[in-house]
Design a protein around this nucleic acid. Structure first.
Lengths: 125, 125
DNA sequence: CTGTATCCTTTGTGATACTG
DNA sequence: CAGTATCACAAAGGATACAG
């Protein structure tokens, strides 16, 4: 947010859910949350394997952000070699109904979007 | 999606709602949908004024994408000067319960995120 | 294993000016 | 009014290599 320009404020005025969208639907956050939800508490390398196209750099960045936002919990085990586990926090878990609603909307309407696109593109050509 | 690398496929496997997130929660789409929902059918310049920080270029880009996805309807009135009106489609309107759920989650949990951030940043300093 | 560091490319976005 | 065209820039993301 910028106090000079008030950009974030403007975005919030135009759309009250803008802050939540920033937190929950940033790129890579939903795949990470989903994977943690599907497979439970797991290590860094497991996440990396399951989200095949993510790089360690980006995975670290997103996990840090989500940890800071209180959505995931990071547990460091000081062993050799080091072991780190990630899991969904209670706050993160409270998003489950939301994700379920998104899944349902997707099941009912994703195909309509596809058809709309085809129709639109046909009108173009 | 890239057939060679299968990147989109990977993202979908890791997270079934990835396609919906792309469609609905791209940048600027929620403010635009929200404004259309709040003020109803309106002209290009009205949208531009209500979402103060958006530029005409970006507004056009987003509106075109949402029109192609079937979320909004564009009506062109061939007058002088030209008049164009945008409104939410039936498909776009079907997102309303989702947005309501997001609003509710925000009301209940946004503050928790703020507190988690403060706690995290304190531990850093 | 769990990341960091570096470099590089791409994408998104903004500023500005202009057209029918 | 409703955009389009062009330039420019910053940030996000990917590739790769390396460290504790």
């Amino acid at each position: 947010m910028n106090a000079e320009t008030g950009e974030a404020l403007d975005a919030e005025l135009a759309c009250p859910i803008a802050p939540v969208v920033d937190i929950v639907f940033s790129r890579w956050t939903t795949p990470i949350l989903w994977t943690l939800h599907e497979y439970g508490r797991q290590r860094f390398v497991e996440l990396q394997r399951r989200i095949a196209t993510i790089t360690p750099k980006v995975l670290t960045q997103r996990l840090r952000q989500m940890e800071r936002d209180g959505l995931v919990v990071r547990t460091y085990h000081p062993e050799v070699p080091p072991r780190v586990e990630y899991e969904i926090s209670e706050l993160g878990g409270s998003l489950a109904p939301l994700f379920a609603a998104l899944t349902e909307w997707s099941a009912e309407n994703l195909e309509k979007v596809e058809r709309a696109r085809s129709a639109y593109d046909e009108g173009e050509g």
